[in-house]
Design a protein around this nucleic acid. Structure first.
Lengths: 160, 160
DNA sequence: ACCGTCGTTGACGTTGACGTAAGCGATGAG
DNA sequence: CTCATCGCTTACGTCAACGTCAACGACGGT
C-alpha cells in the first residue's frame, strides 16, 4: 500500500505552526518542556505531526479560556490515555465536571463584563456627542488590526 | 436626622470582605497599593464602605474574565470620574471597544471548551458504565464545595 | 569563503499578582 | 499580666509563562 492516506501524514516545522497560530518557537519548546507536546525528531529538528498540531490547538484554546498549562496537560494526557486506568478516568470525570462549573461561572462573568463595557461605551458616546462630536468620530476606527490581546499579545523573539 | 438611611452606611473590616469574597487581606492591600481601592481609615485601620465593596466585586469579576489589574483600574477610574478629560474618554472608548471584541472572542472559546468538556464527560461516562458502573456512581459527588478555581484557589497568609 | 536563515540548547531576565516573613501597636479573654 | 487575635507596614520571595541572549550546527545562495 504505497501512497494512500496522504493527508494525515503531513508534518510541520516549528516555524510553520508558529506562523499559523501566531505564537513563538520559544513557546512551543516551552510547552514541550512542560510535557504538553512531544514532536518527533529528525536529527535534532522537531517535526510536528497532525496530531501535534491538534494538541497545540487545544493548548491555545485552553489558554484563552484561562486554563493553566498544568491543567491543559492533565486534559491532554487524559485524552490520549483513554485506555486502562478506569479509576483515573473516574477522578478525571470529577475534575472535568468541576471545570465545567467554573467555566460556566466564567461565562456569566464574561457576559456581565461585556454588558458593563457596552453600556459604558454607550454612556461615553452620549457624553461625547454632546461635548466633542469630533473626538467621537475619531474613536470610530479600530486603530489597529484586531489585537489578540491578553494572552499572546506580544510576539517577538527577534524583533530587534 | 438620626437613624435613617441605615443600610448604605454599613462598613466592613478587611477580614469581613476577605471572608465574603474568599481572598486575603494581602490582596486587598495590594489592590489599594495599585490604586484600585481606597478605603477610609480610622487611625490606621482600613474601613471599607459599601462602595468599596462594590468596587471589590468588580475587581474580582474583572480578574475572573482575565483583565489585568491595570485594566480594571482604568475602568474603575473612568466610572467614578466621568467629568472632564473628554479626549481621555475618547481613547478609553477605543480601548473599551477593543476589549469587547476580545471578550466576545473569549466567550466563543469558552463555549467551545465547555462543549468539549461536556462531550468528554459523556464519553467517559459511557465507557465507565460499561466497565465500572461502581466508579461512575462514586464520581457523582462534587467531592468538595464548589472550588472557585483558577484565580484565588489558594488562600492563606498564615496557614502555618 | 562568507552570509543569512532556520534550527538547536542552555541559562538568565521579566512581569504580574500576590505570598511570606519580620516587627510592631491595639484590644479582648483568661 | 500574658497571650492570642486582628491589624498595620516594609521588604523580600515566588510562580507561571514566556522573552532575551549567547553560542552553535546545517543549509542554500552568491
Amino acid at each position: 500500500m504505497p501512497h494512500e492516506l496522504r493527508r494525515p501524514e503531513r508534518t510541520f516545522t516549528i516555524r510553520q505552526l508558529c506562523l499559523e497560530f501566531k505564537c513563538t518557537p520559544r513557546a512551543l519548546r516551552f510547552y514541550e518542556d512542560k510535557g504538553l507536546l512531544s514532536p518527533a525528531r529528525q536529527g535534532l529538528n522537531r517535526v510536528y505531526s497532525y496530531k501535534d498540531r491538534a494538541r497545540l490547538q487545544l493548548i491555545l484554546r485552553g489558554k484563552r479560556v484561562n486554563l493553566s498549562l498544568a491543567e491543559i496537560r492533565e486534559i491532554l494526557d487524559l485524552y490520549d490515555k483513554r485506555d486502562g486506568g478506569a479509576s483515573q478516568n473516574a477522578t478525571a470525570l470529577r475534575k472535568f465536571r468541576e471545570r465545567i462549573v467554573t467555566l460556566e461561572q466564567q461565562r456569566e462573568d464574561l457576559d456581565q463584563a461585556i454588558n458593563l463595557l457596552k453600556t459604558s461605551c454607550q454612556a461615553i458616546e452620549d457624553q461625547l456627542s454632546h461635548t466633542r462630536p469630533d473626538l467621537l468620530a475619531e474613536a470610530e476606527q479600530p486603530a489597529a488590526p484586531p489585537t489578540t490581546h491578553r494572552v499572546g499579545q506580544r510576539h517577538p523573539e527577534h524583533v530587534r
